[in-house]
C-alpha cells in the first residue's frame, strides 16, 4: 500500500477505491495539542479541495481537505474520546476519515513522500 501526500499536509492511503486521510507528522507538530476533531457526515459528497474534517488544537481550528473528489465513508471514532491520537500517532492510529474516491486512478497525481519532504 502506498502513501501519498498533499501540499496542505494531508497523507492519503489507498486500498481499492477507499482512501484513508490523516495529517502528517509535520502538520501535527505545527498544530500542537489537538483537543477536538470532527468530520463531515458519512455520505457527504465532496469535490477535490473541499474540507472533509476540522482539527482543533488549543491554538486554532484547521480544516482538513480531501485532495480528490470523494464521498465520506467513516470517521475515526477513537478521536472523539482521544483527539490526542493525532499528536501521538498522526500517520497511524490518528487517521481521520475514510472516503470513497470517485476516480481512484487520480491517486497517483498526489505527492510522493520524497516530493512532500522537499516541500517542507
Amino acid at each position: 500500500m502506498t502513501t501519498r501526500y498533499t501540499e496542505t499536509h494531508e497523507w492519503v492511503n489507498l486500498e481499492g477505491d477507499t482512501a484513508t486521510i490523516g495529517i502528517t507528522h509535520h502538520a501535527a507538530e505545527e498544530l500542537g495539542d489537538v483537543v477536538f476533531v470532527e468530520a463531515k457526515e458519512a455520505g457527504t459528497e465532496l469535490a477535490a479541495g473541499e474540507a472533509v474534517a476540522v482539527v482543533e488544537s488549543v491554538k486554532a481550528a484547521s480544516d482538513i481537505y480531501t485532495p480528490l473528489q470523494a464521498t465520506v465513508l467513516s470517521f475515526n471514532e477513537k478521536l472523539s474520546d482521544d483527539p490526542s491520537l493525532i499528536n501521538s500517532a498522526p500517520e497511524g492510529e490518528g487517521w481521520i476519515v475514510k472516503v470513497k474516491l470517485a476516480s481512484p486512478e487520480e491517486f497517483d497525481r498526489l505527492l510522493s513522500a520524497e516530493q512532500y519532504q522537499q516541500k517542507l
Binding site: 496542505t8 499536509h9 502538520a27 505545527e30 498544530l31 486554532a60 484547521s62 480544516d63 482538513i64 481537505y65
Partner: peptide, 8 residues
C-alpha cells in the same frame, strides 16, 4: 490542512 498558527 492550512496551518494558521505557528508556521507563520
Amino acid at each position: 490542512m492550512s496551518i494558521s498558527v505557528g508556521a507563520v
